[in-house]
Design a protein around this nucleic acid. Structure first.
Length: 274
DNA sequence: AATTGTGGCGAATGTCTGAT
DNA sequence: ATCAGACATTCGCCACAATT
């Protein structure tokens, strides 16, 4: 979709971009040949910006995420998919004194999980292999939390699905969006972030391995669903452009999930707290 | 509960166009 | 050559929504 995108050029908004499409200027190369068609911008500016766009395509996602609106960053997904990871963290709470308990990192093929007290530290090295991170509300929560916890800067470009989905009319949190986008979860229905805190406590206090495994199953499912949500959001957005057929993405297959949620421990904790 | 950034909205700024 | 009007983008502020 980037090759059809003009709204990342300073001075061109969504209105001008739409007008360009309507007048048959649908790609970077077509605009390159008629750069004088854009009102208020010099041909030189246009040509320079298109040259930069071409240069950074496939190499530097920041060039595009910085210049696009938060809700429009879905556009760079296919171009950077090979260096994209999906990410979700679980913590002991929301405040800045809370700790990270588990992390799930999904590259589109396999899920890696990280557990506090075991292998959490190796997350930092692993995540550096990627250029783009996909999250839900990660701009406000996951990424700053990770940076504070590990005292490291993550300079990945971000696709935060919260804003992409909100533009499509999907609100009400991750679970609400999954429902609206037709993605359902199995046994883990009814578990949320607050419950994840309780699962971790159960694991820590009683060394309950199946509480941990249930937490990891939940963490993993959230993370894997991010890819499906992004593909669905991409297709719905693309459907509103003249390029729908050409750009449509197939729904991703589900990776093998190794963690089994334990229904017994879930109902035990529910009884105890509700 | 603690924190964060944005979408929304009105106002301000800037540029192009057409009329004089 | 100049100016008003139309249109588009950007700015500044605040309430709200989202994460565990």
């Amino acid at each position: 979709m980037l090759l059809h995108t003009f709204s990342h050029i300073p001075g061109i908004g969504n209105t001008t971009e739409q007008r360009l499409w309507d007048s048959g200027i649908t790609t970077w190369s077509k605009l390159q040949k008629k750069p004088d068609i854009v009102p208020r911008l010099s041909s030189r500016e246009i040509v320079e910006n298109l040259a930069l766009s071409q240069k950074f395509l496939g190499h530097d996602p920041h060039f595009f995420t910085k210049r696009l609106k938060r809700a429009d960053v879905w556009r760079l997904f296919p171009h950077f998919r090979a260096s994209t990871a999906y990410l979700d963290i679980e913590t002991t709470g929301l405040g800045d004194s809370a700790d990270i308990t588990t992390i799930a990192l999904y590259d589109g093929r396999e899920v890696k999980t990280y557990i506090n007290g075991r292998n959490l530290e190796s997350f930092v090295d692993d995540v550096m292999e990627f250029k783009v991170l996909v999250t839900y509300n990660g701009i406000s929560f996951d990424i700053p939390f990770i940076e504070r916890f590990f005292k490291t800067k993550l300079d990945h470009a971000q696709i935060d699905l919260r804003y992409v989905l909100a533009r499509l009319g999907c609100k009400g949190g991750l679970k609400g969006c999954e429902k609206q986008m037709g993605i359902n979860r199995g046994t883990l229905d009814g578990i949320d972030g607050a419950f994840a805190v309780l699962l971790w406590r159960e694991y820590e206090r009683y060394d309950n391995e199946s509480a941990l495994e249930t937490l990891l199953a939940y963490n993993t499912e959230d993370t894997v669903n991010l890819e499906r949500l992004l593909v669905e959001a991409y297709n719905r957005n693309v459907a509103k452009t003249p390029f729908a057929e050409e750009l449509y993405l197939p729904f991703p297959s589900c990776p093998q999930l190794i963690f089994q949620p334990d229904a017994e421990i879930v109902s035990l904790i529910k009884q105890h707290y509700c």
